[in-house]
Design a binder for these strands. Sequence first.
DNA 1: AGCATTTCTTTACATATGTAAATGCGCAGC
DNA 2: GCTGCGCATTTACATATGTAAAGAAATGCT
Lengths: 190, 190
Amino acid sequence: MENLIKFFNSTVPLSEKVISLMAGMFVYDELKKGAYFVKTGEYATEIAFLETGIVRAFYVNNEGKEYNKTFFSAPSIIGSYASLISKQKNNVAQQALTDCKIWKASFHEIEKVSEGNFEIERLRRMIAENYFLSNEKKELEMAMLDADKRYLIMQEEYPGIELRIPQYHIASYLGISPTQLSRIRKNRSL
Amino acid sequence: MENLIKFFNSTVPLSEKVISLMAGMFVYDELKKGAYFVKTGEYATEIAFLETGIVRAFYVNNEGKEYNKTFFSAPSIIGSYASLISKQKNNVAQQALTDCKIWKASFHEIEKVSEGNFEIERLRRMIAENYFLSNEKKELEMAMLDADKRYLIMQEEYPGIELRIPQYHIASYLGISPTQLSRIRKNRSL
DNA sequence: AGCATTTCTTTACATATGTAAATGCGCAGC
DNA sequence: GCTGCGCATTTACATATGTAAAGAAATGCT
């Protein structure tokens, strides 16, 4: 729980009051490797703080192929943010790639306590902005850089992740086939 | 100016007080076709309401090729949102594709008046969320759908835009070459 | 109206990357 | 220590899409 507070505080400093409010909203839980935190086609209701572990967000195209959109590496917030704020169904599933420790909360409750609470409203604004920025960053990278460079950036962004999850998840994240990732790795090491 | 108020009100209803606050912050201006509202490498300071016209947001890769990231078709908000909230340099330029009428404001001033103003804070949160959602939507479309389908969606999202801007801008938006767009259009009409 | 410029389409060709399948490697469990 | 299974790499091949260039069409300017 201290980790959660610390994590939020690194976005905006929070008052004692807000901290104790939040403390009541989050409960501890675990995700086994392979378990889903969010499933496609459902309405998201929960958000969680990922204390340890790795989660992937991925979508499936009409041919049934999976694409990894994001990795969440602790400490981080998980939950289908898009579905929560739009009240639409998820298009993106979230699945644990390792065993995970999480603290989850009902998003609806968070919305309720932020009614009229300036501080939480501001926290939510900053969270929205951060999501926006990291999406934007990934989008630009995907579009401007070749897979080579994206691979490099991925390694900086998620240090050590390659040791913890299979290569084909990385390939999917980079938007290329495992075959192609292999070719890149081969060239890299020449 | 009424259009501006109407536009913001369609996100969250605003009080008289906030409306008059805003009225003082936005001033009328125009952009000639081809003019830039935002240039790459600079720090954004302004935001604007696009009352009439079309603006494109685009980035340039290291080979000097341009990619259109978004079209803004009035009524809409323009300005390098990412740069404004991150206080980093722009990676994305914004250029008028037709003559435009705009109402611009200093983002810094907006930030100042939202200090402690719950309503504006909430407006900003919702704007951030909307930006996030439209980015997310585009990202999923780009990744899950082929250019065919994206072309269709583009036509729904920006009705009539094809009559107002050159084809190669559309191609660039779809992430394909003009040649390829031509091929798609040809197949479409069979 | 006529010329010039811009835009769109088409062709021919090159190539990057995906798919499929075979091989190789390493770790886990017995 | 052996066996099997999951994962990574490699090979061969197919193909979608980009590039370049030429031609056609449209637009705009004087």
